[in-house]
Design a binder for these strands. Structure first.
Lengths: 104, 104
DNA sequence: ACATCAATTAGACGGTTATCGAAACGTTGA
DNA sequence: TCAACGTTTCGATAACCGTCTAATTGATGT
C-alpha cells in the first residue's frame, strides 16, 4: 500500500489552495492542537507522540486524532520509524498561510 | 449605558493574550467569516451590513452573529451610524496575530 | 404617532468535533 | 512464537457551532 503523504506539496507562488487555508485555520483553532504545534515547533529535533503525551493531558486516541488533523492540514509531517511516530513542523506551509492572511 | 468596545486595545509589545489568540483563530476558521473579513479588508472605505449581505448568501441574523464573533476577537470595529453598522478591519490586530504565529 | 427599514436577540435544529475506553494493528525484543 | 509497547481505529457521548425563522429593538422620514 502506497504511503500517500497527505498531499501538501511545496506552496506554490499563487498561494495555498482555498481548501488548505480552511484546514489550517481549523487546525489552529483548537487550543490543544495549537499547544501541540507549539511544542513541535519549539524543539529543533523531532518530537515523538510519547513526548507530547508527557505534556498534554490527553489520551493516545485523542492525540492521534489531532495529529491526523495537523497532518491533513499540511502543518506537520509524520515520520514513522518502527513503532514510533516523529513529528516535524512544516514551517514553509505555516509561513505560506501567514503570507496569505497578510494580504487580506 | 457605556458602549464598551469589546476590549481589544492596541496590541502590546508582548503579544496578544492567549485568550484573544484563540478567539481570532476560531474566528478565522469559519469560511463564511473568512469571506466577510476579506470583503471588509478589500474595500478602503467602510463596509455596511447591507453591503455584505449583497455578496454573502446568509440571513441578517447569521451575519449579525458572525460580526459579533469578529468584533469579540478584535478583528473588526463596528461603527454605528444611525440604523447602519459600518465595519472596519483592525489590521494591527490581524498583524499582531500573524506575528505571534510566526514565532512558533 | 406611525410605518418602514437595519440590525440584534431568542430559540430551535442539524451537523461537526473533541474526547474517551476498548479493541485492533504493527513493531520489537526475548 | 509470543508478549509488551506505541499508535491507530471504532463507536459512543457530550458539547459546540452555523444556520434559520420569528420576534424585538432602535432609528428615520412622513
Amino acid at each position: 500500500m502506497p504511503r500517500r503523504p497527505a498531499k501538501s506539496p511545496v506552496p506554490s507562488s499563487d498561494g495555498l489552495p482555498e481548501e488548505q487555508i480552511h484546514l489550517i485555520a481549523k487546525a489552529l483553532a483548537d487550543p490543544r492542537r495549537f499547544e501541540i504545534l507549539k511544542q513541535i515547533g519549539g524543539k529543533s529535533c523531532a518530537v515523538s507522540c510519547t513526548d507530547l503525551r508527557e505534556c498534554q493531558p490527553i489520551s493516545a486516541a485523542t492525540l492521534s486524532h489531532h495529529l491526523k488533523e495537523l497532518e491533513e492540514a499540511g502543518l506537520i509531517t509524520i515520520v514513522r520509524s518502527g513503532k514510533f511516530a516523529n513529528l516535524i513542523l512544516r514551517r514553509e506551509i505555516l509561513q505560506a498561510y501567514l503570507d496569505q492572511l497578510a494580504k487580506i
